[in-house]
């Protein structure tokens, strides 16, 4: 994962609530065995509507997206995060996110920033004409108009993002704990191991 620190640039003021994963990347795009190239399908149905914010020239290549409540609800498809990354988005700001999407975003180095609705509304306004900045180190979103909106982030996620850490590598550091857990588990709950099908055995 690439390290993330401050993301500054134009922000697409989408503002919609309940943007589900089928909107972010429709199912017919999921038939790929790679992570690349999904940007073409990102927000396909919205982009097909005339006057949508993705068509505005100023927002081409914008690194930030601003959305409404419950962003990324629906399926577990990580393709949603890959598609956003592929179109150049590295931060999303919304009043709330679905749990699975927030996890997928984090694992791909996309910063999912939760701010109260009034602050999101303010950013939607500012984003029409100006750049905004998301500063991970200081946990603050700023605008050229002296707005300063602080946000919370899980300390573990913050560290991983700032340092670009590989989570699997980190977990493998707990190898001895995992092995110990497996040994105790095998003694106490042997039926959980090797559940080979009896008819196949």
């Amino acid at each position: 994962m690439k390290a993330v620190s401050t993301i500054r640039g134009r922000a697409i003021p989408l503002g919609l609530k309940n943007v589900d994963t089928d909107v972010i990347i429709p199912a017919h795009w999921l038939k790929t065995i790679s992570r690349e190239g999904l940007g073409k399908g990102a927000f396909e149905t919205i982009r097909a509507t005339p006057g949508n914010p993705f068509d505005v020239e100023d927002f081409a290549g914008a690194p930030i997206l601003i959305a409404g409540d419950n962003f990324g609800c629906g399926s577990s498809r990580e393709h949603a995060a890959w598609a956003m990354l592929d179109m150049g988005l590295t931060a999303v700001i919304a009043p709330s996110f679905s749990d699975i999407f927030a996890g997928n975003a984090f694992k791909n180095g996309i910063l999912a920033v939760e701010l109260p609705q009034e602050q999101v509304d303010r950013l939607l306004e500012v984003a029409k004409d100006e750049q905004i900045a998301v500063d991970l180190e200081n946990q603050v979103v700023t605008t050229p108009f002296q707005d300063r909106f602080e946000f919370q982030i899980d300390p573990f996620r913050k560290r991983c993002l700032l340092e670009g850490l590989d989570e699997i590598g980190l977990t493998l550091g707990s190898e001895s704990e995992i092995t110990r857990h497996e040994q105790v588990r095998e003694g106490a709950m042997p039926w959980l191991d090797k559940p080979s099908r009896r008819d196949a055995a």
Partner: peptide, 22 residues
């Protein structure tokens, strides 16, 4: 519970997940 592909990879490699209690 459902997981994303990075988590699928994490479970395949480690049989664990890093989670916070809900």
């Amino acid at each position: 519970f459902g997981i994303g592909t990075s988590e699928v990879e994490h479970v395949l490699a480690t049989q664990t997940l890093q989670l916070r209690q809900s």
